[in-house]
Simulated assay, not measured.
Amino acid sequence: MGSADLAARFEQEFGRLPDGVWQAPGRVNLIGEHTDYNEGFVLPFAIDKTARVAVGVRPDSTVRLLSTYGDHGMVTADLGTLAAASAKGWTKYPLGVMWALQQQGITVPGVDLLLDSNVPLGAGLSSSHAIECAVITALNDLTGAGLEPEEMVLATQRAENDFVGAPTGIMDQSASLRGSKGHAVFLDCRDQSVQLVRFEAEPAGLVMLVIDTRVSHSHSDGGYASRRASCELGAEVLGVKALRDVRLEDLDEAAGLLDEVTYRRVRHIVTENDRVLQTVELLASAGPGSIGALLDASHVSMRDDFEISCPELDLAVSTSRANGAIGARMTGGGFGGAAIALTPVTSEQQVRAAVVRAFADAGYAAPDIFTVTPAAGAMRIS
């Protein structure tokens, strides 16, 4: 839905025009999975699928929230009594942002808010962070808070961790708030420094396919938290601030200090950080056609060492590779969601057809397959 259509729908629902419309993109993580909360390196990019919010300031402390999708009905809350336990469904994301801003001493006004999003839900493309980033961009403008992108990243992380209850890092918000068209966001999660790395598949004769397995996941469930706990245990036993500080050459020694499962969790993080650095170097020197083997190795590591894949993701990856993709991996937090397949334009239709056929043969629900390109970050659009 375009900004004019969303504003018109807002007027229809709330009886007045909004003060503006803002949008923030979902993201695909090219490489660097679960490294963010280990103070490591990630390489996501903002995608051309966005969450949009039309927002109008109210004279009181009431918040009214409405979404264009689903039969959710209007949700009303009061800014004076925001509590995580009372927030349900998608509304916990905008309410969490409002709560986090209040925790920073920012006076948040009551608002009417209408959400529209075409970021697939539960696909590992960060639909929730897209909502949060659109809302915080709107509130930053409307309150005159003057927050820098780095500050908005930390505020939305606080909303996720302490209000939504998902122990996520800063990668998703950073991609959504700091993305740039035609570039991936090389993020150092220790100091939040960002380097934009050119990543354009089409000039290299490639497309980035996203294969949404339609196996939904939730980061507030236990699998993500248990992986994070393993990483924290590994860092504690190895005597480092974070697994970012463990080098490849330290892994042999680590194997003698850690139990077998914790060691494999640690090995994934250490090797994945190295793969991110290699990918950044290769993109600069040889272009996107050179990174396929690193995508493949990342998936194997997530499947075997971090154990966050699932049969549908593994099938999407193996079928893509067998039918012409130059590299493929699951992307996102895992336990479902989407895989990406970097594919020659000439093989795109073959890969699409083969994956659909493989899913049908396995008795899985039909996947949703689409292309994405690196897009601009969060902004006001009207």
Rank of each mutant, 00 (worst) to 15 (best):
S126A: 13
A134K: 01
T76I: 15
H183L: 15
G144F: 08
A138I: 04
D188A: 07
E132F: 05
N118W: 10
M98R: 04
L79F: 03
G124H: 02
G182L: 08
S117V: 08
D191M: 02
S126D: 10
Q104V: 06
L113M: 11
S128A: 03
S180H: 15
S117T: 12
V97Q: 07
V185T: 11
G110W: 02
W90M: 05
V135K: 00
S174K: 14
D116K: 12
I106N: 00
L125R: 05
T168E: 08
D188S: 10
T137K: 05
W99T: 01
E132H: 08
K88C: 00
L139W: 11
N161D: 06
K92V: 06
P94G: 04
P120V: 07
L196G: 05
L125M: 10
S126T: 10
G110T: 06
E200V: 09
A83H: 11
E148P: 13
C133K: 01
S128F: 01
G179K: 10
S174Q: 14
E160H: 00
F186Y: 15
D116G: 13
D188I: 07
I106G: 01
L121T: 14
S127L: 12
E160A: 00
G80K: 11
G144E: 08
L154E: 06
T76L: 14
G96E: 09
R158N: 04
T137R: 06
N140A: 00
V164M: 11
Q192T: 03
T76Y: 12
H183C: 15
Q173I: 04
Q173W: 04
L196Q: 09
Q157M: 02
G80F: 10
M171V: 07
V75Y: 13
G89Q: 02
Q195P: 10
L154V: 04
V194M: 12
E151G: 00
L177V: 14
A84L: 08
A123F: 00
S174C: 14
D141H: 15
G80H: 11
G146T: 03
C189V: 08
A83D: 11
E132P: 05
D116S: 14
Q157L: 01
T76D: 15
I131P: 00
G146W: 04
V135G: 00
L177F: 14
L114T: 09
A77R: 04
A138H: 03
T168K: 08
P167N: 13
L121I: 15
V194G: 10
G110I: 03
A145K: 02
G122L: 02
H183D: 14
M98K: 02
V97E: 07
S176T: 09
C189K: 04
T143D: 14
I136H: 01
T81Y: 13
L115S: 04
G80V: 12
Q102D: 08
D112T: 12
D188F: 07
D78C: 12
F199D: 01
S174T: 15
G165M: 13
L147N: 13
G182I: 09
D191S: 02
A123E: 01
G105H: 14
D191L: 03
L154A: 06
S127F: 09
A159R: 01
V164N: 09
L82I: 03
T81A: 15
S86T: 11
L95D: 05
P120T: 07
L114F: 12
A123N: 02
D141N: 14
D78A: 12
T91R: 13
R198E: 15
M171Y: 06
V119P: 07
N140M: 02
V197M: 09
E148I: 14
T107W: 05
A87E: 05
K92I: 05
A123K: 02
G80P: 11
Q195T: 15
